[in-house]
Simulated scan of single mutants.
Amino acid sequence: MGAAKIRKGDEVVVLSGKDKGRTGTVQKVLPKDGKIIVEGVNVATRHVKPSQANPQGGIDRSPAPMHISKVALADPKDGKPTRVRFEEKDGKKVRVAVKSGEVVND
């Protein structure tokens, strides 16, 4: 498997689904499943019964994994979705945004 085009800490834009157009930071990448978890996007709600550990109970909201093909890296220049290419600069392999040609923070 090659290098990951989307990594933890990247700013991404959702391309499809109920959260289309929203942006967020990647919290976790699950390469075996081909999924990622993005902060504040694809939030799942779970109703929790009161227990000893949580006597209040209530509604638990947490981001759920979504398929990596539903997101694209946000261009560092304007924040719009872009693809990623790999180039070698100063003897180091870096990720480059296709739209603007800028190096993505590595």
Rank of each mutant, 00 (worst) to 15 (best):
R83K: 08
K35N: 08
H47S: 10
V41P: 11
K28F: 09
Q27S: 13
Q27I: 13
R22W: 12
I68H: 02
K80P: 10
R85N: 06
S51W: 01
A53Y: 13
R46D: 14
V26Y: 11
P31C: 05
G21M: 06
K70N: 04
S69P: 15
D90W: 07
H47V: 12
K89E: 11
G101P: 09
K49A: 12
V26P: 06
I68E: 00
L30R: 14
V43I: 13
R95Q: 07
K70H: 09
R7S: 03
M66L: 10
V104F: 08
P55Q: 10
V98S: 03
K5C: 00
H47T: 09
V103M: 05
I36G: 01
V38H: 08
K8R: 03
D75A: 03
K5D: 03
V94L: 02
R22T: 01
I36T: 05
D90G: 11
K77E: 02
K32V: 09
V48P: 00
K99W: 08
D33I: 13
Q52E: 15
D78E: 03
G57H: 10
G58L: 07
I59T: 14
K32T: 08
S69D: 13
K28W: 15
E39G: 06
R7K: 07
K92W: 05
T25S: 14
K5T: 12
V12I: 06
L15F: 11
K99Q: 12
T23N: 04
E87Y: 07
P65K: 13
V41W: 11
T45K: 12
N54C: 04
P63M: 15
P63H: 12
R7H: 04
D78P: 10
P63L: 08
K93S: 13
V104I: 13
M1P: 01
V26I: 14
A72C: 03
N42G: 12
A97C: 06
K77N: 02
D60G: 12
I6N: 00
K20C: 15
R22I: 03
K49C: 08
G101K: 02
D10F: 05
A3F: 09
A44R: 12
H67L: 15
K35L: 13
G34I: 06
T23P: 00
K80M: 09
D78I: 15
I37R: 11
A97G: 06
K89W: 13
E88R: 05
L30M: 15
R22S: 03
V104P: 14
K35Y: 09
D33V: 15
V71K: 01
D10I: 06
R61Q: 14
A3P: 04
V71M: 01
S51H: 07
D10H: 04
N42Q: 11
G2P: 00
P76Q: 00
V103H: 07
L73I: 11
K80W: 09
S16F: 15
G79T: 09
V13T: 03
T23C: 04
K18A: 10
V41S: 10
V96Q: 02
V103T: 14
Q27G: 10
S100W: 03
V29D: 02
Q56Y: 14
V38Q: 05
K89V: 10
R85P: 15
N105M: 08
R61H: 15
